[in-house]
């Protein structure tokens, strides 16, 4: 266990428990019985606990927050999304959001499984900065919020295809999409763009270098700016909002994985 891929067992087990939880959430969604919902939630909490232990173990072993590689970022991102379910459940009693959130967590963990898993106790010089914590943590929180919005959008489209009426549940899901975007946008602007620019200025002497990751972040930001402008004009609601939120998710994924193929200044994360 004490090697460069420390903590993997926890994530591996957590992944399977999340998957099981998702399947039970699907049953809950189909039968609308509280019992399978509770079982699914308990499984989800168990997976989240394992996930948390894995992150803490990796953090302690390597001596820095596990955000230094794309693999670590994916694990923290999926953890943030998983935590959002806990908030939605306890704060708003929004059990059905499990159907939305568990598959996103699983997708991110699947993506993580394809990424190099080695860690290092020594952060490379460019990452040895307090901006590392600010920039990447806020970016992960923001992207987590956007991904929750995308998951809720899939659910919204699925439900709206089956019914024509705008029920209270649909209103709640639409509210979740809007709120997630409204939480994600300022975090992304401050964390990913501004903190990233300031850090780039400190480390590389330039606020902006048109690096693939930076450009990807700009496209993401512009796209969500567009969504918010349309929202303020009373446009892009309901199904349209759900669809554009899913497009936003796709842009985030391309931006996230882009530097795997494109390289650039962010090639290590």
């Amino acid at each position: 266990m004490m090697d460069g891929v420390f903590g993997l067992s926890f994530f591996w087990i957590a992944f399977w428990v999340y998957l099981l939880s998702f399947l039970v959430f699907v049953v809950f969604f189909a039968v609308r019985n509280r019992l399978p919902g509770r079982i699914a939630a308990i499984l989800f909490f168990a997976a989240l606990a394992l996930h948390t232990v894995g992150i803490i173990a990796r953090w302690r072993f390597f001596g820095h927050i596990p955000l230094a590689t794309m693999f670590e970022y994916s694990l923290v991102l999926s953890w943030i999304i998983a935590v959002s379910f806990v908030l939605l459940l306890f704060r708003f009693d929004f059990m059905i959001s499990g159907v939305v959130i568990s598959p996103i967590v699983i997708i991110i963990m699947v993506i993580a499984s394809f990424l190099p898993k080695e860690g290092s106790k020594q952060l490379m010089p460019a990452l040895q900065s307090y901006w590392f914590y600010i920039h990447i943590t806020l970016a992960a929180l923001a992207e987590g919020a956007f991904l929750v919005a995308a998951g809720a959008s899939v659910y919204y489209l699925f439900r709206s295809a089956r019914t024509n009426s705008y029920s209270g549940e649909m209103e709640r899901v639409e509210g979740l999409i809007i709120k997630s975007i409204r939480i994600g946008y300022p975090l992304f602007t401050i964390g990913a763009l501004f903190a990233g620019s300031l850090w780039a200025w400190k480390a590389w002497g330039s606020f902006w270098s048109w690096d693939p990751k930076e450009t990807g972040a700009l496209v993401v930001w512009l796209f969500y700016t567009l969504i918010l402008h349309q929202q303020s004009r009373g446009r892009w609601e309901g199904r349209t909002l759900a669809m554009v939120s899913i497009v936003g998710f796709l842009i985030i994924i391309v931006s996230f994985l882009g530097n795997l193929f494109f390289g650039g200044l962010h090639a290590y994360v």
């Binding site: 048109w210 693939p212 450009t215 990807g216 700009l218 496209v219 512009l222 796209f223 700016t225 567009l226 402008h229 349309q230 004009r233 842009i251 882009g258 193929f261 494109f262």
Partner: peptide
């Protein structure tokens, strides 16, 4: 305003792809 943001988003995405 929305149109110009949309065009800038599209132009950035196109530039993103071509630059790579």
């Amino acid at each position: 305003a929305v149109m110009i943001i949309a065009v800038l988003t599209l132009a950035s995405a196109v530039g993103w792809v071509f630059s790579e």
